[in-house]
Amino acid sequence: MTDTTVTYLFDPLCGWCYGSTPMLDRLAASGVTLELLPTGLFSGSGARPMDEGFAAHAWANDQRIERLSGQVFSQAYLDNVLNVRGTLLDSSAATLGVSAAGLDDPRLRLAALKAIQRARYVDGRDIVTVDGVAQVLADAGMADTAAAVKAPTDEVLAAHRELVGRGRGLFQRLHANGVPSLAVIRNDAPRLISSNALFGSYENLVAHLQAA
């Protein structure tokens, strides 16, 4: 598996993506090269108000994700994120943060994503505004990335657009029906791995990747 590159399609505000983090960590620890590509699913036209109905739907899903993955969805998240009206489900700033973190070293995208996810789902912090994301990244020791989020240069914005564009393009090419999605690319041909493999045993996930 050490010669395998796995592409991971995600959105920072996707609870199932947060739930798949333990499997990503195990893959990275085993020597698999992970390429993280954001799809922008909940940004731009995909953003939506955090109303009561959506909050209830999200919390029900989150409880299922917690049972399957062991990832914590805290009371602080319920109180300070889901139950706060007048906010948006908008991943624009968080996605920019992940892109900016990997500008010089793509491996840092995972660290930035994990910091952002933990801030939301465990600490109940704001990750839908530029200031909120910048503070989370600064607290995680990524001061340069935080500054890039608050005042992005043309280089950062161009790299961000290119990364999301690649993510959306691959998502469409795979005919994926949601995130998280995994792909193994061999001979320029991407092969979609069922997202269910991220929520079973690690051995089952490895078997899926080896068979792709």
Rank of each mutant, 00 (worst) to 15 (best):
S45A: 12
E162A: 14
H57L: 07
A93Q: 13
F171P: 04
A207K: 12
G178M: 07
G165R: 07
A29W: 04
G97E: 01
A101L: 03
A211T: 15
R48A: 15
V81Q: 05
M50H: 11
V84R: 06
A197L: 11
F10N: 09
A211G: 11
Y8H: 09
Q117K: 04
D188C: 10
L198K: 00
F54K: 12
G141W: 10
P106N: 08
R85H: 14
L182V: 00
V179R: 00
V6G: 10
A101T: 04
L9A: 13
P190E: 08
R168N: 10
Q172I: 11
W59Q: 08
P190V: 12
D188W: 05
S45N: 09
N80F: 03
L182S: 02
W16K: 00
A158W: 07
S20P: 01
T39F: 11
Q210A: 15
G124Y: 00
D90M: 14
V128L: 04
I127F: 03
Q117G: 07
A29Q: 02
T95L: 13
A158G: 05
A158D: 09
L82D: 05
V179F: 08
V156A: 03
S20C: 08
L88H: 11
P190S: 12
P22Q: 05
Q135K: 14
C17A: 12
D126L: 02
G165H: 02
Q117V: 13
